[in-house]
Design a protein around this nucleic acid. Sequence first.
RNA 1: GCCGCUGUGAUGGAACUGGCAGACAUGCGUGACUUAGGAUCACGUCCAAAACGGGUGCAGGUUCAACUCCUGUCAGCGGCACCA
Length: 803
Amino acid sequence: MNYDFTKIEKKWQDKWEAEKPFTAFNDSVKQKYYILIEFPYPSGIGLHIGHPRPYTAMDIVSRKKRMMGYNVLFPMGFDAFGLPTENYAIQNKIHPADVTRENIKRFTSQLKMLGYSFDWSRCVDTTDPDYYKWTQWIFLKLFEHDLAYKAFIPVNWCTSCKCVLANEEVIDGACERCGAEVVRREKSQWMLRITKYAQRLIDDLDEVDYVERVKVQQRNWIGRSVGAEVDFKATTGDTIRIFTTRQDTLYGATYMVISPEHSLLQKWTSENPDEIRAYQEAAAKKSDFERTELNKDKTGVEIKGIKAINPVNGDEIPIFISDYVLASYGTGAIMAVPGHDSRDWEFAKKFNLPIIEVVSGGDVENEAYVDCDTGIMVNSPLINGLNVEDAKVKMNKWLTEQGLGEEKVNYKLRDWVFSRQRYWGEPIPIVECEKCGYVALPESELPLVLPDVKNYETTETGESPLASMIDWITTACPKCGGPAKRETDTMPQWAGSSWYFLRYADPHNNTALASKEAINYWTPVDWYNGGMEHTTLHLLYSRFWHKFLYDIGVVPTSEPYLKRTSHGFILGEDGEKMSKSRGNVINPDDYIAEFGADTLRLYIMFIGDFEKTAPWSYKAVKGCKRFLDRVWSLASGELDGQATSIDDISVDHEAAIHRTVKKVGNDIETLKFNTAIAALMSLVNDFYALPPKKADIRMLLTMLSPFAPHIAEELWELQGFDGYASEQNWPQYDESKTLDADIEIAVQIMGKLRGTIIVPLDSDDDFIIEAAKKDEKIAKNIESKEIIRTIVVKNKLVNLIVK
RNA sequence: GCCGCUGUGAUGGAACUGGCAGACAUGCGUGACUUAGGAUCACGUCCAAAACGGGUGCAGGUUCAACUCCUGUCAGCGGCACCA
């Protein structure tokens, strides 16, 4: 009988569909284990080969955890709001909801064809009003706690999507999604105060088990730096507050720079207003990208007729505007210390400004002395002779005493721009009342359902398609009953995914986002695997929302995910990133049809280190198919012996089986799926060398079932074993049985391998040394030499040191 | 510029905590079975093969022993970046 994977896979998938063996229970006595993968965006092109890598990995973990006796929650859903669907809808004149429904259908059937053990009864869809009701509810809570606010600010505007982007969505000055240029626009936008959580988002990383690169990247993004804010007086009488991390170098400040957008500029009358206005206008026109691109050539304009006064020595110093100072960081103003900052140094050279050395050890005439931690303060009466660190401490104290400033921590993290001028997103449940300002809709009016519109396109003025729905916009203020207008922007794609893992705990609840009991039972997520590309987007956003929900008592823990791992991308056969234009895209459907889902699952895990990128190889897929063919021909025939427990396995294979149980089990827990599969292949090779008994095959199928569940169940049934392979206990190994009775150990002379000997397991040192000396090859090597030292590593090797 | 990661056969990749480098797979080679083989099975496959030889990006060091630890250096990938 042949391995007819098409028939077998259909058979078992139908069975799982009917019997639902992978349902998670909210009232189980078993220990819970919550495994999460990032739910996909159901795009029109269907499942991509990148999807099955994390899904298969976590499916294997889920299946193994179930076999270990856990009540496993392994859910799936769809993050379905977003631009591609909207664009497709615009082009084809279909409602985005219809497109979404079709895409979800297709994704679901593709996922089912891969045999994943999802609990489909908990499937969620972020575009379902029953779901986004709670996304809106959380937004209202944020608004209530002053964490959502509307502000007129310069924003990132994607010229192609015609939409505002969050900082996290801008990559090298271009749109993260479409690659088009991002320009600066002033717009009134809803914002979320993620910055209020910056410190906790850093601190709590110490509490969770995330792979290090994720922690590093988040810390990097939040960008904490410790310094001080210091007030400089201007000759106009105004105060200019600056932020610096080098308060020790205050005596070296020979000029100031403020950003072209600084508010004081509106107030001041300088001697050169035209020059200043021209510079401001030029800076405003530049995109962020252009501004950073020009970083070699420093530009700026002095504000003539106005000076600043250095608070430490009373010196009058000039003030410049320059776009190397950002309005959005710190206070938008800096003191410039050309002696110890390379940007200031460059600027000072160009504009012929004085350079004062305040930390000794460098040569400030030739270049800024920046890495001067080991230097000693000079030319700084208050702190001369101190090292840099002590100087900072003393300076902080002095600034506080004088009322001139204080120690201050700054973050690169910006508040989250939360409005999108698009149709296919959650409506923001806020109205603007002429009298009361921004007013929240009452909870009873949720969900605020997305209305049908004729036209899904953003208007030329950059307004959401909802802006043309006059009937919908016009409403009454919930507070005073007066005339009010609805918010026409929608939420960003990241809204629905910021809390979806909570919904899985209790997906059909219509009185809360999930019941308290369900949340308390299932959360936090035990293991979350996802892509590195979400580290400073979804992962950061959802940690923020979770912390807020913790603060208002909705969830029991301040962190949503206990453990975070991340997979590498799969590249095309040419080693390049897959893309339509390169023509190297791999379609999973083709592989399921040609080799079957089990082979695809196996190969995608065998391809290489799970955490690294790996190139696809058609030929290597065939190797995995060959392996399953070999398993099939071994296990589909008549087999000898009993097969009721691990004790029935044959003596010949005992050590190999125990070793494999140990290896496969450990490797699954540490994401080493490739070596787990290699171990199973080795065992099968052993079985070819020396025929296995029935109990040996039973062990093999048990271990294979998380990886290749269809073939494992089929062979299990064929052999007449009890129940299903997937519901067996995960096998226990006996450490003492993992080694053969006789083992080969290496014999080295002077650290070089000179031969091997076979000795009984756990032989003592003297026995091994004697056995080594008796070995023919070794004896020849050491005759006429004196052994002066011997090193024995038990069951591994012996090293003879000779003279 | 700063931070992090990675360099191993023809290829993808193994190697626990310093203990036989190259598991497993691909590819290639030889043989068997066959009318046939792009199927299957068996064997071989780091280089060199004279061996007490050489070999994990490169140059050193520590050690009885180094892919693994240390110093320096080169290359590639990723993140951050006029962030004061």
